[in-house]
Design a binder for these strands. Sequence first.
DNA 1: TTTATTTCGGATATTTTTATCCTATTTATA
DNA 2: TATAAATAGGATAAAAATATCCGAAATAAA
Lengths: 144, 144
Amino acid sequence: MFSKACEYGIKACIFIAINSYEGKRVSPKEIAEEINSPQAFTAKILQALVRHKVINSIKGAYGGFEVSKYEIKNIKLSQIVKAIDGDNIYNGCGLGLEKCDENHPCPVHDKFKVVRDELKLMLENTSLEELALNIKSGASFLKT
Amino acid sequence: MFSKACEYGIKACIFIAINSYEGKRVSPKEIAEEINSPQAFTAKILQALVRHKVINSIKGAYGGFEVSKYEIKNIKLSQIVKAIDGDNIYNGCGLGLEKCDENHPCPVHDKFKVVRDELKLMLENTSLEELALNIKSGASFLKT
DNA sequence: TTTATTTCGGATATTTTTATCCTATTTATA
DNA sequence: TATAAATAGGATAAAAATATCCGAAATAAA
Ligand code: FES
Ligand code: FES
């Protein structure tokens, strides 16, 4: 469904959010340990998220990754997915036709569109805040 | 969403079904042309579908790929997807945890499961027959 | 039985994704 | 200003997915 990079990206954002609530910046090393991902690869994904302005980075001593405490509830899963995997999953054809087009649909278009749109809606309606709170409360987990 | 291999596999099955209604067997060459896919790679995918008993192959002169005319309505999209991409898309965790487990859920589990289950249901309820008829009637397309 | 046709399957090549490594640049503090 | 701590980013490696090639095996018909 999502690429490995995207899975790591989502989990990383959640961990960053949790720490940002407490004013703490985190490093790729800490993140990778917490979400069980390869560190250097995770660092690359974080760079991409910074470029797309999903998270911030502060360079130099006492730096790290963070996200504005007041923005956490406004950041949606869809932004993270779009930053890393692009928007093919939202708009692309389920059978790989050049583009999904009502006027030139693939055989599964009608049925696929329903599912794809629901996925899109789910990602757009899910905030980093609720995912982070979910982890903090111990109701869900980032690894194993 | 689906792998390239799976996209080709689904389209190939539809084309085979259409021809099987008319008692005609088709070759990887014809299939690849009709669905706009690399021929040799498509042949490999057809082999996998044969191994999983989704379609039949007849070797030798006047051979080719076919599917029992009376089975077309019983073959579901889910069988094709499962044969090629496995069942991770049905059962796997959206964030890549080892397994999707109610008792050790990832942060998106609850919301992801809803979408994943709907996808599963859609694939299980969509038959090769309806897809083939859809193409025959000119209502949908296999390429461009 | 020979021949032409066709799938099967192993070997290999290419491309994309995933992962690692190393150096440059930035920045807070001593 | 010097130093240590961090991210940025380029180069490279490894693994997986996609794609190609070719000979072996099977089969129908001449
Ligand atoms: S054309 Fe294939 S999903 Fe819309
Ligand atoms: S645990 Fe992640 S989807 Fe169920």
